[in-house]
Design a protein around this nucleic acid. Structure first.
Lengths: 149, 149
DNA sequence: ATGATAATGAAAACCGTTATCAATAATAAT
DNA sequence: ATTATTATTGATAACGGTTTTCATTATCAT
């Protein structure tokens, strides 16, 4: 059910216009399971949208994150990466990252136990430090089969 | 027992020299519980070490991370931050971060249960994806009391 | 002490990202 | 439909954190 119609409504509801670059970027990211950088998004869309500028890609990615349609990921490599943000709970996942080549794998192992523990920690931290906690990230770092040599 | 002597040995063992900037940076970071950026390290040491250059700070931080004496942290704010890496298990912790002002709080809540779950996930991921897993990060994101308003 | 060479500091280069601004396109009003 | 309003766009320049370059200096083995 997710698709252009839904996205358009979401944008309009928040006072943003439904434009060609926004649609193109959403369609690209919703179709791939990869975690793309701004440059990669720009590169991927350059064929089909020759006029598109890199500045617009940055602005659009930023907007779509604020609108809740994308997640922005920053592993320590300098550049930010973006992934489509699905609405259903089913897709809750975290990341396994190769420290050498930067490969990213989405995983969902033990999500139920994770949610349970996360809930406990969140409550504890919220009470102890007065935070309103909105999200959490978990990442495992290691060497992928190719990079272990 | 941790201290200059230990650090010096560690560096020498890996073929690095024991220099004034390296000692100064290690002492600074081992004495603070803060997570400092390169610029902040530079700023903190400028009084006592007027000759120290920012380039050296960057290089030294990088070296000490490779030597296993510091942890490099990258939350999404563009700059990297560094924390002293203690040897004992006691200090295993993760981070609670304010999305608005960037405040960082080290927490150790439910570490035992976390370690247990982490172990299970690591084994599962290692087997499934052929990774050699070395580390993991967990972070909770939210708004601190000041920023919730 | 001395020589070999790793480490340093200043400046310039680099790279991802953001600000500027005139031109354009999307929406609201007519 | 047409026009007016205003958000969005794209090119360029600017920005901030980090890295590279290279001549000088400091550390360490001899």
């Amino acid at each position: 059910m997710r698709g252009p119609g839904q996205w358009q409504h979401r944008l309009r509801r928040q006072g943003a216009r439904w434009t060609v670059p926004r649609r193109a970027i959403l369609e690209l990211l919703s179709r791939t399971s990869k975690h793309l950088s701004a440059k990669e998004v720009y590169g991927s869309l350059h064929r089909t949208n020759p006029g598109l500028g890199l500045t617009t890609v940055y602005r659009t990615l930023d907007l779509l994150v604020r609108m809740g349609l994308l997640n922005k990921l920053s592993f320590g490599s300098g550049e930010s990466r973006y992934e489509f943000r699905s609405t259903d709970e089913e897709t809750h996942h975290h990341h396994l990252i190769c420290m050498q080549c930067g490969k990213i794998i989405d995983y969902t192992d033990f999500v139920d136990e994770e949610q349970e523990l996360v809930k406990k920690i969140e409550d504890s931290l919220a009470k102890k430090h007065g935070f309103k906690i909105n999200d959490h990230h978990i990442e495992f770092l290691g060497l992928c089969p190719e990079c272990r040599g």
